[in-house]
Design a protein around this nucleic acid. Structure first.
Ligand SMILES: [Zn+2]
Ligand SMILES: [Zn+2]
Length: 658
DNA sequence: AGCACGCCGACT
DNA sequence: GTCGGCGTGCTC
């Protein structure tokens, strides 16, 4: 009798697969139940093995799928992921397996006969497209095969309407559409627009949905019953039948990169998917990433442009306000307060952006300079007024607030600096009677609270909105006429590799919330560096011009996107273990002349959960070279004694070095 | 990741 | 003597 052999990927942090035998033939991409170290686990068949292996194999306990959950295109993509990010294959397969199917259960396959009707309801505001929109839609409708295209649309230019029309084009052809969005927080608006246009037979797929809901969408998408799926990172490989196009909204958004565990970029992955499936992909944003801009410049990506807001207005530029000689009240300058007063008088709303939540980011003793820090993270504690606790934003530990300095027993302890909470309290006092709305992680933690807050913004007439990044992302606040950016100097002076890209995107996104309804919005940037070259360049609000200059510099310096980098991070209870390991890497790695390793460097978060953190930056001139170099290091490191003392991982295309 | 195996310190 | 500490190594 014939015995078949298969390589099975098991969800553990090991790069290898394990070979099992089976009396029946199994399709690659199916899940199986196997005994692994005496325990039953769900694994994935990744490859058929033609020859009997020269080691002992055990039988596959159960074939879980009659129809494989991953098709041949998916398998190609999953192998690419494991190779590109050098991540254990079993974990890669597991990541894209819906949670329900990680358990040894049979699939609940939906019949292919259920065909849904999608009809664009044209009564959803009879919007006529302007000239730019017509031209852009024309470009997008004509994309063919693997055909990436940037949709550059300034804030408020009506990108969503273009997405809707493009979706309609594909539905008419009997194709399905996948729309990726950065985070759940801003999806409701996009979601609502799609539902009111195409009805509610739309799959909404993100990590806040229950496993059951997600699995249901997954099966309905695969059967062809669902033709529109809107989702976050975890939805990139959602198995839509007859997928026609992928739309990535806010393609520049950093949250597309997973920053824990398997550090893949969902944007880059979706581009890979489009390539493997030979379909177009649309990257929509008001602030394109440098990576995308480079590829547009080199004509590898097409481009469609919406340079005007749908109502014909342009987003406001910036006014820089020198605060070197200003008296600040809770971080706000007198001039800013006056501007707020004026805006409120006109019955309009004000948006205040600050990159910090909590009351105050620094609790300090004025006589001995003692600073409240987290005992396990080496990070400064942030005072939260509502909780009356000092909180570590790294590990969420809460500490009581000492009345006397633990170091010198002095009672002159000060709260330095302002976060959203302090500003909210200050404004409530200063502008008594005015509605103050705070929008940050702390006020939106509860389910539905974001929706509530947004409704409040829309209901209110004059109001002040105070918030962090969340406030800058994609919202439509028609009454906001004034924006104030309180502290972006850290972003301007930071030497971090992406800091200019990040800060310029942030400023533009903030200005994108302002003056959307009427054409007299303004945005004030409070800064101690009013003469900063980059700030001056950005002042007009012309992101593209700024980004192209930035790109030119990256080219000269051979920084990404004109080179590829990886971060090699180590953690261990003893700093010297990290350093020894990273030195061994420097000594042994085979570097060509266009490659470099910079390190070991203590990481910005130098300690976490009692472990020291160090890193090296590995650079090569292409992604392919970088990939080879990393594989070389992994092989070499397998035989060093230094390797055993540390935990280590690579972060490919890192977005920060923290 | 888990889990067994093994070789040293401090317990009944 | 032996209980258990976690450093090291292996998993089809
Ligand atoms: Zn003190
Ligand atoms: Zn901490």
């Amino acid at each position: 009798m014939n015995i078949f052999y298969y390589d099975v990927a098991i969800p553990i942090p090991i790069r290898e697969t394990f070979t099992y035998e089976c009396k029946e033939s199994i399709q690659v991409g199916s899940r199986v139940l196997v005994e692994f170290r005496k325990k039953k686990v769900v694994g994935h068949i990744v490859k058929a093995v033609s020859k009997k292996p020269n080691f002992y194999t055990i039988q596959i306990s159960e074939i879980l799928d009659e129809e494989p959950i991953f098709k041949s295109n998916d398998i190609d993509i999953l192998f690419w992921l494991a190779d590109y990010y050098q991540h254990p294959i079993g974990e890669v397969f597991d990541t894209f397996c819906p949670p329900t199917l990680r358990k040894p259960v049979k699939r609940n396959i939906h019949s292919r006969n259920i065909q849904s009707e999608y009809k664009a309801f044209s009564n959803d505001k009879k919007v006529t497209l302007n000239k730019e929109q017509v031209e852009s839609l024309e470009i997008l409708n004509n994309l063919d095969g693997f055909d990436p295209c940037l949709l550059y649309g300034v804030t408020g230019s009506g990108k969503t309407e273009i997405y809707l029309r493009l979706t309609d084009t594909y539905l008419t052809k009997g194709k399905s559409v996948l729309i990726l969005v950065p985070e759940i927080s801003l999806t409701p608006q996009l979601e609502d627009r799609f539902v009111s246009r195409f009805g509610d037979n739309i799959g909404i797929y993100h990590s806040k949905k229950t496993a059951k809901q997600r699995y249901d969408i997954w099966e309905r998408a695969q059967s062809g019953e669902l033709k529109i799926v809107i989702g976050t990172r975890s939805a990139v490989l959602c198995p839509l039948n007859e997928l026609g196009v992928i739309i990535v909204d806010e393609e520049h958004d950093q949250s597309y990169k997973q920053h824990e565990g398997f550090r893949f970029s969902a944007r880059d992955l979706s581009i890979k998917r489009a390539q493997v499936e030979a379909i177009p992909i649309v990257l929509g944003t008001a602030t394109p990433s440098l990576q995308t801009l480079r590829l547009v410049q080199e004509k590898k990506y097409k481009e469609a442009k919406l340079l005007k807001r749908a109502n014909g207005f342009k987003p406001p530029g910036f006014i820089t306000l020198d605060i070197n000689d200003s008296q600040l009240e809770s971080g706000i300058a007198k001039e800013s307060l006056d501007a707020i007063t004026n805006t409120l008088k006109e019955n309009k709303q004000v948006l205040i952006f600050i990159n910090r939540r909590g009351f105050s980011p620094l609790y300090e003793c004025s006589s001995c300079r003692w600073i409240a820090e987290c005992s396990s993270c080496d990070a400064r504690l942030v005072f939260h007024h509502g909780l009356n606790r000092l909180i570590c934003h790294r590990c969420d530990s809460a500490y009581g607030v000492p009345k006397k300095c633990p170091a010198c027993n002095s009672s002159s302890l000060n709260l330095q600096g302002s976060g959203t909470e302090r500003i909210e309290l200050f404004l409530e006092n200063y502008f008594e009677g005015t509605t103050i709305i705070r929008l940050d992680q702390d006020t939106t933690k509860k389910k539905g609270s974001l929706k509530e807050i947004l409704e409040m913004v829309h209901k209110s007439e004059s109001a002040i909105l105070v918030g962090t990044q969340m406030l800058a992302k994609g919202h439509d606040f028609p009454r906001v006429e004034l924006g104030i950016i309180l502290n972006c100097d850290s972003g301007i002076t930071s030497p971090d590799i992406n800091s200019l890209e990040k800060i310029s995107q942030l400023l533009i996104q903030v200005s994108g919330r302002v003056g959307r309804k009427e054409n007299n919005g303004k945005v004030i940037i409070q800064t101690r560096y009013p003469e900063d070259k980059n700030l001056l360049e950005l002042r007009s609000g012309d992101y593209l011009n700024f980004a192209l200059n930035n790109l030119k510099q990256k080219k000269e310096l051979r920084h990404p996107p004109y080179s590829a980098i990886a971060l090699l991070r180590t953690t261990s209870p003893l700093a010297k273990h990290n350093i020894n390991f990273l030195h061994q890497v420097n000594k042994s790695a085979k570097l060509k002349s266009d490659m470099s390793i910079i390190g070991p460097i203590p990481s910005i978060i130098s300690k976490s959960r009692g472990n020291f953190r160090h890193h090296s930056i590995i650079q090569a001139s292409s992604k392919i070279d970088l990939n080879k170099l990393i594989k070389n290091i992994i092989v070499l490191a397998g035989s060093w004694k230094e390797t055993k003392k540390v935990k280590w991982y690579f972060d490919i295309d890192p977005i920060d070095y923290n």
